[in-house]
């Protein structure tokens, strides 16, 4: 979703041809996402008209499913590929706007709480993934990439780390495929487990934010449970994303010591370069909302805009998941990923359940 290129200009979203090239894919994202929203509304309207109780399947799931159908049947047309890749951009814009729904004090309190859980989760993920990588004799750098992907924020963390530890393209694509496959599975599995355990929105959201690796999937898995759970998932995941620089730096220094990567000249600059800047925007909007800068109606408008932005994201999640391409990546990284993620999901679930017992 992102690369570790440090050159700032030219901007990814300029004007003219660069922008025009993105349009077809953005239109496809909108079409698929909107079709998902229409489907949810149509089913609800049908149920009301015929007085039957139909399961309320959120637009989130429809958008992902329609995206999956397109990408795994006719495929994403090449003219749309560049635009479809913008789904992460919409996710970030949506998260910034979602800040309007948080009181800054809550963000700092819950974010701080999440960060404590994140630190534990990071330690567990790195230990589990490293051990599994050794057992299954994966290349050491692939193991590092899987650990980074599982501990922080999936694809962007892997891509950020790839440059920092001089990993092969092949290792990076293996690790990304494993993380994406697991993300797709967790979308369907996590809400079922959450409902089976009768988890509160806050507990479920925190669990998703800690255990689902990719931000888009974490946002979707949270929103599938409830709006409130989606908010908590975004907050926990954002806190987790904020640690990306530290973990990637740690791995970079580890590989420098082993002679497998070029040195890091300026650690502070490195941390700033890897820091997800949209987190700052999220905090700033939350601060403005807390200070009463927006009226209630304006806050609702901004929250709705955030939902529209997420609509593009969820369509993108389906559109860029190609089952055959994932299957081609081989089974060993996937086995390590599945085993590791099961352990991480179980441990983080236990952490969240214990924490909720103490806080209630």
């Amino acid at each position: 979703m992102t690369s570790d290129v440090t050159v700032i200009s030219p901007p990814a979203f300029g004007i003219g041809t660069r922008y025009a090239r993105l349009l077809p894919g953005i239109v496809l994202l909108l079409l698929i996402g909107y079709l998902g929203k229409l489907t949810e509304q149509s089913i609800a309207a049908y149920g009301r008209a015929h007085q039957v109780t139909l399961p309320n399947i959120e637009y989130v799931l429809w958008a992902i499913v329609f995206g999956l159908i397109v990408s795994n049947t006719i495929g994403v047309p090449s003219i749309c590929e560049a635009g479809v890749e913008t789904y992460e951009f919409w996710l970030k814009a949506g998260i910034v706007l979602l800040g309007v729904r948080f009181v800054l004090g809550d963000v700092l309190r819950l974010g701080g709480l999440s960060l404590v859980a994140v630190v534990l989760e990071l330690a567990i993920s790195i230990v589990v993934m490293t051990a599994l990588g050794r057992v299954f004799k994966l290349p050491p750098k692939l193991t590092s990439l899987l650990s980074i992907g599982a501990s922080i924020c999936g694809v962007s963390a892997i891509i950020a780390a790839k440059g920092a530890i001089d990993a092969d393209d092949e290792d990076a694509s293996y690790a990304i495929a494993a993380i994406l496959a697991l993300g797709a599975v967790s979308l369907f599995l996590f809400p079922v487990i959450g409902h089976a355990l009768g988890m509160s929105d806050a507990s479920y959201g925190l669990w998703v934010g800690l255990a689902v690796d990719n931000t888009a999937e974490a946002t979707a898995a949270g929103a599938l449970y409830s709006d409130a759970a989606g908010k908590f998932a975004v907050l926990a995941k954002t806190a987790r994303n904020a640690t990306i620089g530290f973990v990637v730096l740690g791995y970079a220094l580890y590989w420098v010591r082993r002679g497998g990567a070029a040195g890091v000249a300026n650690k502070a600059a490195f941390l700033w370069q890897k820091f997800p800047k949209f987190v700052l925007g999220f905090l700033l909007i939350s601060g403005l909302a807390t200070a009463g800068f927006f009226t209630r109606a304006q806050s609702t408008d901004l929250a709705n805009l955030s939902r529209w932005a997420f609509l593009f994201t969820f369509a993108g999640v389906g559109l860029r998941t190609n089952v055959r391409a994932l299957a081609r990546q081989g089974w060993r990284p996937l086995v390590v990923g599945v085993a590791g993620e099961c352990v991480i999901a179980t441990v983080t679930l236990a952490m969240v359940l214990i924490a909720s017992r103490f806080s209630s």
Binding site: A12, E88, K92, F278, G281, L302, N304
Partner: peptide, 30 residues
């Protein structure tokens, strides 16, 4: 790329927020 995309997302979100604040954007339905 990461830097610029992140910043552009922030710029877009704040532009939208400014438009909403100034009343330049009509009510956003969902």
């Amino acid at each position: 790329m990461q830097l610029s995309r992140d910043w552009w997302a922030v710029v877009l979100a704040f532009t939208a927020a400014l438009f909403v604040k100034l009343g330049a954007l009509p009510h956003v339905p969902w």
